[in-house]
């Protein structure tokens, strides 16, 4: 594990935009499709560097998804960018039928994941997308937590044969890893080793989980903390190793608790190693406008709630 103390912050969408430019230089198969929010998704950087390989289709996400399929069929490696709400839901069936079914190398990189869209409100907060895309065969689903792991994830997405859904944040995230982080698709990163309780976190919730683990350590509770940046394929081995050791699991995701990380973990534990589990996330509700911090607190997703969830689940150990 390679971690460094947080020294600055960056939205993961920025890391995505920067990496696209690097990739564009290295590999002329890369093309980028955008639906009129390039300043927001950060694909404008690629547009400036490689105007010939950038296609702004306007506010037409369904068309964009299938155009990417056509480009992939003709040997290119397309990145499709929009907000997570539109990428996963407005163009859902296009993604399923024209991209995932023929197993094309289309990378769907979407910003404004979960409550990181904060004051834009419910229309722009994707809290269902992980559940939707996870249920589509052939899809790989990623949400790295910080800029360095996002850079690695973007590169890994190019290498994968088949479609990748990459979930990015609107707001700045602390820098957790250094540039040499060993990011492998399907391999969780263990951020803490402990024997009392497992916390499996994804994306921006990794930072809440780290803080919770520190507070729990102050109470003498040692947390085994996993950054489960790949929601599909889930790192079942790492999960089972940890759950077997601690006997209690908490999941933390910026998403509805139905369908996303919590569900994926529950499925794996249920089949292989039934273990007391609490899922922290949106409890099957839409959120509202507000600051990111206010929303996490209000919906029971901040570090304090994670601490409480860990304590509760530990009481259920046999």
């Amino acid at each position: 594990m390679t971690t460094a103390a947080p020294k600055r912050e960056l939205p993961t969408r920025h890391a995505y935009g920067e990496t696209l430019v690097e990739l564009g230089r290295e590999d002329d198969r890369i093309v980028v499709l955008e639906a009129d929010i390039s300043k927001s998704t950060q694909t404008y950087r690629f547009a400036e560097a490689f105007p010939d390989r950038f296609f702004n289709v306007g506010v037409a996400e369904q068309n964009m998804m299938c155009m990417a399929a056509g480009a992939a069929i003709c040997g290119r490696i397309p990145f499709v960018s929009t907000y997570a709400v539109f990428g996963s839901m407005r163009a859902c069936e296009q993604m399923r039928t024209s991209v995932a079914y023929p197993k094309l190398n289309v990378n769907i990189a979407v910003s404004h994941a979960g409550l990181t869209a904060y004051d834009d409100g419910v229309t722009h907060q994707a809290v269902e997308d992980l559940g939707i895309v996870r249920s589509i065969p052939n899809m790989t689903v990623l949400q790295p937590c910080d800029a360095p792991s996002t850079r690695k994830a973007v590169r890994a997405a190019v290498e994968i044969d088949g479609p990748v859904y990459l979930r990015l944040t609107r707001i700045a995230m602390p820098i957790l890893y250094d540039d040499n982080v060993d990011f492998q698709i399907g391999k969780a990163i263990r951020l803490r080793t402990g024997g009392d309780v497992t916390i499996v976190a994804v994306g921006d919730m990794v930072f809440q989980a780290r803080e919770a683990a520190e507070r729990l350590a102050a109470q003498g509770i040692e947390v085994d903390l996993l950054d489960m940046h790949t929601i599909k394929p889930l790192d079942v081995d790492a999960l089972l190793d940890s759950a077997t050791k601690t006997g209690a699991v908490v999941t933390a995701e910026d998403h509805n608790v139905l369908g996303g990380l919590g569900s994926a973990v529950a499925e794996a534990l249920g089949e292989h190693c039934p273990t007391p589990l609490l899922r922290v996330g949106l409890q099957d509700t839409f959120a509202q406008s507000g600051s990111y911090g206010d929303l996490l607190r209000h919906y029971g997703m901040d570090a304090s709630h994670l601490v409480e969830a860990a304590q509760r689940v530990m009481r259920r150990k046999q």
Binding site: D119, D120, G121, V122, T123, H124, Q288, S289, G290, S291
Partner: peptide, 12 residues
């Protein structure tokens, strides 16, 4: 756009 307000970022 503040939490608790009915004036959300987009119309509700």
């Amino acid at each position: 756009r503040k939490i608790g307000s009915f004036l959300h970022g987009h119309p509700d």
